[in-house]
Design a protein around this nucleic acid. Structure first.
Length: 269
RNA sequence: UGAAGUUGGUCUACC
């Protein structure tokens, strides 16, 4: 079953659900009993190709057929609904699982909180944070990162920073996601000096900047029409061994065009 | 030995 599940997951990762399901049927035909994890990879595959409806019917079949769904499959679907903007449906599924005796965990809550933040349903998001606390579900790095990112995107950098302070108090170390969200938040506000400070801070704290860090900063500098600093960062990332990707290039080419340096843009192209 | 959550650009469509 483990071998088959691994193979089925391979097809799912490729987005080849037809092969994945064919292999699931084959698995059962040759006498192996697929289990909850096997269904998990199929449900996850359906979610990642954007077919949440099919994922839900898969969950229903699973509930009829086998023992019991678990928190992982519910969380996958809850996440997918949130990504589709169907946050109320996701909350409904969360109540449903709870009433079936399946307790939401930190992943479930994190998906819902992110969905609520993305829909600007702040009050409900903070209600869920309270619920987590009451039920003794600890926030982890990802939950903190979701909050810091949501606040940064809303321009509430002060709030994002206090979340980061709180996560440190709680013994979670900010990581490259945390710093990248904060940097992007400053870039959105055109506060490039502050963004640069965070860049230096992350280095001093031992988080290595990655492609996203550089691309965000390059985008920020282009936005304030300081192409020289953007180009400087391009050189720096290349010297650190990063290969700029299509995001980096489109950002820079767009930036050069905006300031009228179309020849230089063409050269980069 | 197998399944779930967090960060960057552009363009297009709709409102």
């Amino acid at each position: 079953v483990v071998t088959f599940t691994t193979l089925i997951n391979g097809f799912c990762v490729e987005g080849n659900l037809v092969q994945a399901i064919r292999l699931l049927e084959h698995t059962e035909k040759v006498g192996y009993q697929s289990d909850i994890r096997t269904f998990g990879v199929i449900i996850n595959g359906l979610c990642s190709i954007g077919d949440t409806t099919a994922a839900i019917s898969c969950l229903r079949k699973l509930e009829e057929r086998i023992w019991k769904a678990n928190v992982v499959v519910y969380s996958m679907i809850i996440n997918s609904l949130c990504k589709d903007g169907l946050v109320s449906e996701a909350l409904g599924l969360c109540s449903e699982m709870t009433s079936k005796g399946i307790q939401p965990n930190v992943v479930t809550y994190s998906c819902l909180i992110q969905g609520l933040c993305n829909s600007c349903r702040w009050k409900e998001a903070s209600a869920l944070l309270n619920e987590m606390r009451q039920r003794g579900v600890m926030l982890d790095v990802t939950t903190f990162n979701i909050l810091a990112d949501a606040l940064s995107k809303e321009g509430m950098i002060v709030g994002a920073k206090s979340i980061i302070g709180f996560m440190i108090q709680m013994g979670e170390k900010p990581d490259v996601f945390t710093y990248n969200s904060l940097i992007d938040g400053y870039c959105l506000q055109n506060q490039m000096n502050e963004a640069t400070k965070v860049f230096h801070l992350m280095v001093s704290q031992g988080s290595l900047p990655d492609m996203v860090t550089y691309s965000s900063l390059i985008h920020g500098w282009c936005k304030v029409r300081n192409i020289d600093n953007a180009m400087h960062l391009l050189d720096e990332m290349v010297s650190k061994g990063f290969i700029p990707d299509v995001v980096t290039w489109t950002t820079l080419i767009g930036g050069l065009c905006q300031v009228g340096r179309t020849l230089a843009a063409k050269e980069l192209f």
